[in-house]
Design a protein around this nucleic acid. Structure first.
Lengths: 228, 228
DNA sequence: TGGTGCATTTCGCCC
DNA sequence: GGGCGAAGTGCACCA
């Protein structure tokens, strides 16, 4: 990875257009062609370019200009003054981040414990296909009525919309004429609760301790399969 | 901004939980307390922490450990070996990125040119309040029927959902009993078109040249006010 | 390669 | 400070 500290101004054209007035910033150039320009504030780079960009060098008005171009985008960095330029050897193989507590894991846990959604609930399927894309979980309530469940860590308005969309698609099939909708999340936001209730979508907040419970319940059912 | 090149492993706890096996990476520490850990690939840091974190140093099993803690999150970086450690003075005042072609600008342009939505269309309001949040534009069609318009650069399924939500809220008011819905975007994705049509939401694709036309139209109407 | 949805999304705006 | 929505979102996954 190469890092250049420079007084620079930037012009970007692509999905949108941006320009960045001159200031001293850090430019990171990675081996895969990813480029990012950082100020001394915040996590997000001011300008950036995805991996696979092609680096060319030119000059305009006596100023060094670096261009990074990809299929549909292009960025030009005007280097008014270079204060530092260094190369650093990072690992060529990145082990990668291991996440825990993700939505897919929450979904898997619920698939094994559908009773968390309501007493007597049973699983029909995960990522169950509908005409509007796969719904996270399809379950049956205690009365045997199908319920389309959207799983989220934090449920906001869009979650209710997704449920509505899946219900809308499923209702055109005979066996799902009376499908209900449900949001299952660790955190269901207030406005989302209101919207859900107005649309007759039920919601449950799951215990924050679900990952601990996953272990506890797992130990009481010794023959469970491997988890994601 | 401080940059440390180090063989490090990381543990993060907060909104989720992650761990990162040991490898050589670049650690950026900014003056506002933002921290990010980069591999040599891609733009997104593997681990990160927002501004305002508090940095403390300790030791575990003879290894240097840096902790960065904020209100609800915490990250620990185990520095197995430090290969480089440098400080760089970046601009204390960042001029900031200037964007062009954003959604608010597109919205402003449409507000001045409602005929782009259809012949005879007139503007009622921008960010017009509904019980489900403000709708981008409220206009009247040539027959005087109100139309709730969601403006997007790229319209995907969520855009249709937003329109549905606003219509749902507006219809409970007498004067908007028969409000229609509309998506106005530079790019309306195929599945979004289908969903919109199924829900009786109309859609228009706006000319990619709208920013040029903004200039052209402006020159033919010399007394227009300042734009955003 | 394009479509769709998650993300420790980040960030900004408004309440 | 919390809620909500845009983003040049990035990114993985899947058709």
């Amino acid at each position: 990875m190469r890092m250049v500290i420079a007084t620079c101004s930037v012009v970007y054209t692509g999905r949108g257009d941006t320009r960045l007035p001159a200031a001293v910033r850090a430019i990171l150039i990675k081996t895969d062609g990813a480029v990012s320009i950082h100020s001394d504030f915040g996590n997000k780079p001011l300008n950036y370019m995805g991996k696979g960009s092609i680096h060319t060098e030119s000059e305009a008005d006596g100023t060094l200009v670096w261009s990074f171009d990809s299929r549909k985008e292009s960025i030009q960095i005007h280097l008014h003054a270079v204060h530092s330029d260094s190369d650093h050897l990072l690992s060529e193989v990145e082990p990668g981040l291991v996440r825990d507590g993700t939505e897919p894991q929450l979904q898997a846990w619920l698939a094994e414990h559908p009773e968390q959604l309501g007493p007597g609930y049973t699983l029909v399927g995960r990522e169950y296909p509908t005409g509007a894309g796969p719904v996270d979980l399809l379950v049956l309530d205690e009365a045997g009525t199908p319920v389309a469940v959207e799983v989220k860590r934090v449920a906001m308005l869009g979650a209710a919309d997704q449920v509505s969309r899946y219900m809308e698609a499923l209702r055109s099939e005979v066996e799902f004429q009376h499908v209900r909708g449900m949001i299952a999340a660790l955190d269901v936001r207030p406005k989302t609760r209101l919207l859900a209730e107005k649309r007759n979508i039920s919601w449950v907040e799951l215990p924050r301790t679900w990952r601990d419970e996953r272990v506890v319940t797992g130990s009481s059912e010794p023959s469970l399969g491997e988890e994601e």
